[in-house]
Design a protein around this nucleic acid. Structure first.
Lengths: 160, 160
DNA sequence: CAAGATGGGTTCCAAAAAAGAACCTGTCAA
DNA sequence: TTGACAGGTTCTTTTTTGGAACCCATCTTG
């Protein structure tokens, strides 16, 4: 499979990865969620090659995940901000961060903590079922073909 | 920054991506969650080049995300299964899938639906605060330095 | 018993993507 | 008028991919 064909796969994970599954993109988005907005700032905080950064910011903007907003004219300077669509990637960021906190932090503990502002506590997000409110774990979930299934296929083990 | 240095970053997102942030790895894990287990099956379902697949499976095994289990001797054949550590990536998968369902599915709707087996309903996962039980959105969360902060830094906009 | 078939790889080469560094372009300030 | 700054673009070299071919041990079939 070609990477560019990924958005045509009948799989929402693959389609999402066609937008954010790039080596650098999720790190750029991490910075966005930490309020980094300017080219220079992304560059110095990430240590990314400039043309790779320029390319990713362009693609994210074209995908509607970021928007460019002028913060001054003459000389025109623009910054990149998350759109609603981009902000909706927060659960992905948070779950990635929490896995890293659990498995990659080592003895020192996690480098950053997240505070849920409405209640004021350091929080870890828990994934619950929209229908019954109980926590969701991998073994609690089965899949079935949805309306856009077209030619989606399941592995043999799941076909039962 | 070099990709191999990612696990030494003081950021749990970066550290997680050092394990799963590769172009193919999250797709391989998607297959694992769909119960794909054998080399051949990964290859045909993903259309991935064989040596890239072999490399990623090896790295995931070394990282403790997958384990190799012999399902027959003579000739010895092994399959790859998610470990506990791997299964803990499920929230990442689910949130990626849900973003794709919302933004990439188009008119046809999502290709796969997830059923919460304990309650029997088609479900979407919601991220809630472990402390107060309320939903978490990007604007509800602030960050602060944690015990393993060492040299973690926040962008200027967040330093306040 | 030789000739596939099967599962799970490895090796080779060409093409694509990334890293690193230098260069370009407005605009302002000294 | 010199230079600093933000935001890129253009070059060359190194790494990663994709694609196809090859390898190896064991069963199966004729």
């Amino acid at each position: 499979m070609r990477w560019e064909d990924l958005d045509r796969e009948a799989c929402s994970v693959a389609r999402t990865l066609s937008v954010v599954g790039d080596r650098w993109t999720l790190l750029i988005l991490r910075e966005c969620f930490l309020s980094t907005r300017r080219f220079e700032e992304f560059e110095t905080r990430l240590g990314i090659a400039r043309h790779v950064l320029a390319d990713r910011l362009k693609k994210l903007t074209e995908a509607g995940v970021l928007s460019k907003l002028a913060y001054q004219e003459r000389p025109r300077r623009e910054e990149y901000r998350l759109t609603e669509k981009g902000r909706d990637l927060y659960p992905v960021m948070m779950t990635l961060a929490q896995w890293g906190d659990k498995y990659m932090a080592g003895d020192a503990g996690p480098p950053l903590l997240r505070v849920h502002k409405p209640c004021g506590h350091v929080t870890v997000g828990a994934l619950i079922c929209s229908e019954c409110g109980e926590p969701i774990a991998a073994h609690d979930v089965s899949v079935k073909l949805g309306p856009g299934a077209a030619e989606a296929t399941l592995p043999a083990a799941r076909k039962a």
